[in-house]
Protein backbone atom coordinates (compact mmCIF):
# COMPACT_ATOMS: atom_id res chain seq x y z
CA UNK A 1 0.00 0.00 0.00
CA UNK A 2 1.30 3.43 -0.92
CA UNK A 3 0.20 6.67 0.74
CA UNK A 4 0.63 9.94 -1.13
CA UNK A 5 1.97 12.34 1.50
CA UNK A 6 1.04 15.96 0.68
CA UNK A 7 4.69 16.96 1.14
CA UNK A 8 6.78 13.89 0.25
CA UNK A 9 4.70 12.27 -2.49
CA UNK A 10 3.78 8.58 -2.88
CA UNK A 11 5.53 6.45 -0.26
CA UNK A 12 5.37 2.90 1.02
CA UNK A 13 3.11 2.43 4.04
CA UNK A 14 6.21 1.08 5.85
CA UNK A 15 7.32 4.68 6.32
CA UNK A 16 4.20 5.48 8.35
CA UNK A 17 2.94 4.68 11.82
CA UNK A 18 -0.78 4.00 12.16
CA UNK A 19 -2.83 5.58 14.95
CA UNK A 20 -6.42 4.75 14.02
CA UNK A 21 -9.77 6.48 13.65
CA UNK A 22 -9.46 10.24 13.12
CA UNK A 23 -13.01 10.92 14.32
CA UNK A 24 -12.69 10.95 18.15
CA UNK A 25 -11.99 14.38 19.63
CA UNK A 26 -10.84 14.96 23.18
CA UNK A 27 -13.84 15.73 25.43
CA UNK A 28 -14.06 18.68 27.79
CA UNK A 29 -12.64 17.40 31.12
CA UNK A 30 -14.69 19.94 33.09
CA UNK A 31 -18.04 18.80 31.66
CA UNK A 32 -20.38 17.04 34.12
CA UNK A 33 -20.39 13.81 32.05
CA UNK A 34 -16.62 13.87 31.54
CA UNK A 35 -16.06 10.32 32.87
CA UNK A 36 -18.51 8.80 30.40
CA UNK A 37 -17.27 11.01 27.56
CA UNK A 38 -13.65 9.99 28.20
CA UNK A 39 -14.62 6.32 28.33
CA UNK A 40 -16.15 6.66 24.89
CA UNK A 41 -13.19 8.71 23.65
CA UNK A 42 -10.63 6.14 24.80
CA UNK A 43 -12.40 2.84 24.20
CA UNK A 44 -15.35 3.07 21.81
CA UNK A 45 -14.58 2.73 18.13
CA UNK A 46 -16.69 2.23 15.03
CA UNK A 47 -15.65 -0.56 12.71
CA UNK A 48 -16.93 0.62 9.33
CA UNK A 49 -16.80 -1.46 6.14
CA UNK A 50 -16.03 1.29 3.68
CA UNK A 51 -14.37 4.71 3.63
CA UNK A 52 -12.85 5.78 6.96
CA UNK A 53 -10.79 8.77 8.09
CA UNK A 54 -7.62 7.63 9.85
CA UNK A 55 -4.54 9.24 11.37
CA UNK A 56 -1.14 8.17 10.07
CA UNK A 57 2.23 9.59 11.15
CA UNK A 58 4.90 9.92 8.46
CA UNK A 59 7.65 8.89 10.84
CA UNK A 60 10.33 8.10 8.24
CA UNK A 61 9.63 11.13 6.05
CA UNK A 62 8.42 14.62 6.90
CA UNK A 63 7.26 13.61 10.42
CA UNK A 64 3.82 15.12 9.96
CA UNK A 65 0.46 13.69 11.05
CA UNK A 66 -1.80 12.95 8.11
CA UNK A 67 -5.51 12.36 7.82
CA UNK A 68 -5.97 9.54 5.33
CA UNK A 69 -9.32 8.47 3.91
CA UNK A 70 -9.03 4.73 3.28
CA UNK A 71 -11.66 2.19 2.21
CA UNK A 72 -11.34 -0.61 4.77
CA UNK A 73 -12.59 -3.18 2.26
CA UNK A 74 -10.19 -2.42 -0.61
CA UNK A 75 -7.40 -0.30 0.96
CA UNK A 76 -8.12 2.26 -1.76
CA UNK A 77 -7.02 5.70 -0.52
CA UNK A 78 -9.19 8.54 -1.76
CA UNK A 79 -7.81 11.53 0.17
CA UNK A 80 -4.70 12.51 2.17
CA UNK A 81 -4.17 15.81 3.97
CA UNK A 82 -2.16 17.21 6.86
CA UNK A 83 -4.08 16.48 10.05
CA UNK A 84 -3.70 20.04 11.32
CA UNK A 85 -4.81 23.09 9.44
CA UNK A 86 -2.63 25.81 7.91
CA UNK A 87 0.67 26.29 9.67
CA UNK A 88 -0.66 24.42 12.69
CA UNK A 89 0.06 21.31 10.63
CA UNK A 90 3.70 22.25 10.74
Amino acid sequence: MRITCPYCGARSSHEFAYLGDAAPTRPDPSAPDAAEAFHAYVYERDNPAGPMDELWYHSAGCRRWLKVTRDTRTHAITAVAFAGTGEAAR
Binding site: Y7, C62, R64, F82, A89, R90
Partner: peptide, 12 residues
Protein backbone atom coordinates in the same frame (compact mmCIF):
# COMPACT_ATOMS: atom_id res chain seq x y z
CA UNK B 1 25.16 32.18 -1.24
CA UNK B 2 27.52 29.19 -0.96
CA UNK B 3 24.83 27.10 0.76
CA UNK B 4 22.90 24.00 -0.28
CA UNK B 5 19.44 23.58 1.28
CA UNK B 6 17.33 20.42 1.00
CA UNK B 7 13.67 20.49 2.02
CA UNK B 8 12.88 17.74 4.54
CA UNK B 9 9.39 18.75 5.74
CA UNK B 10 7.08 21.77 5.56
CA UNK B 11 9.08 24.76 6.77
CA UNK B 12 12.14 22.60 7.44
Amino acid sequence: AGLEAAGTAPGR
